[in-house]
Amino acid sequence: MSDDIERKLGAQPEADLTDPDNPEWTEEDFARAEGPEALSAAELAAFPRTRNKGGRPRSANPKRQVTLRLSQSVLNHFKATGAGWQARIEDVLKAEIERSGKH
C-alpha cells in the first residue's frame, strides 16, 4: 500500500461499531445467563433444536467420519443428484451389504 493511501486511511475517524439495540455482554450478563433447562415446554417446542447438552441428538447407530477416495466420475454422479448425495452413497453401500448377505 502506498504511503499516500496509508496516510489517508490513518486520517479517517475510527468507526463506531457499537449497537445500542444489541450491546456487548458484560461479566454480569454471563453470570445471570441460564441454559435451555430454564426454558418452558412451549419454548422448547418452538425451538426443537435446542438441547440441554448441545449438538445433535445421539443416534442408536452413530456414524463415523472417515476419509474415502472416490473417482471423480463417482462423485460427479452422486453430486448431480442434489442435496443428500452422501446419504445416497451410504444407501448404495448398505444395499451391497444386504445383497452379499454378509452383515
Rank of each mutant, 00 (worst) to 15 (best):
G35M: 07
A33I: 05
R56Q: 11
E37S: 12
E98M: 13
E34Y: 08
P13I: 01
N22V: 04
L17G: 06
F47P: 01
E90L: 10
I5Q: 12
K8I: 05
R64W: 05
A95R: 13
T26N: 04
E27L: 15
G10K: 15
R69L: 11
P13T: 00
L70M: 06
L9T: 08
D21T: 06
S2L: 04
T18R: 10
A80K: 05
D3T: 08
R58G: 13
K53E: 14
D3Q: 10
S2C: 03
L44R: 11
D91M: 15
D29A: 02
D16C: 01
D21E: 11
G82W: 00
E14K: 15
A41S: 06
R69Y: 11
R49A: 15
T67D: 09
Q12V: 09
A33D: 05
E34G: 04
E24S: 13
Q65H: 12
K8D: 04
N52T: 08
K63C: 04
G35L: 08
I89C: 05
E43H: 00
A38T: 00
A83F: 09
A11K: 09
F78W: 01
R51S: 10
E14F: 09
D29W: 04
L9Y: 06
G54A: 01
L70W: 03
G35T: 06
N22T: 01
E37T: 07
D29I: 02
Q72V: 15
F78G: 01
E27Q: 10
P20D: 04
A15H: 10
E34W: 05
L44H: 05
R32D: 10
Q86G: 13
G84C: 02
P57C: 04
A60G: 13
A11H: 00
A11P: 02
L68V: 07
K63S: 12
E96T: 13
Q65C: 02
F47I: 09
T50P: 02
P23L: 01
E90P: 05
H77G: 06
T81A: 10
A31T: 04
N61L: 09
I97L: 13
A33E: 08
E43S: 03
L68N: 04
A31R: 12
K79Y: 07
A87R: 11
D29V: 03
F30C: 14
P48L: 00
I89K: 01
P20S: 06
Q65T: 11
L93I: 14
D19V: 00
N52Y: 12
R7Y: 06
S73E: 14
P62I: 02
A45D: 07
R32Y: 06
D29E: 07
A31N: 09
T26A: 05
E28D: 13
A33L: 08
D29R: 05
L9I: 09
L44S: 02
P13A: 09
A83K: 14
I89M: 09
G10Y: 05
I89G: 00
D3M: 10
V92C: 13
D91P: 09
A80V: 02
A80G: 13
R58M: 12
S2H: 07
S40C: 02
E90I: 12
R88W: 00
K79D: 06
E28L: 09
E90V: 12
R49W: 14
E96Q: 15
K79G: 08
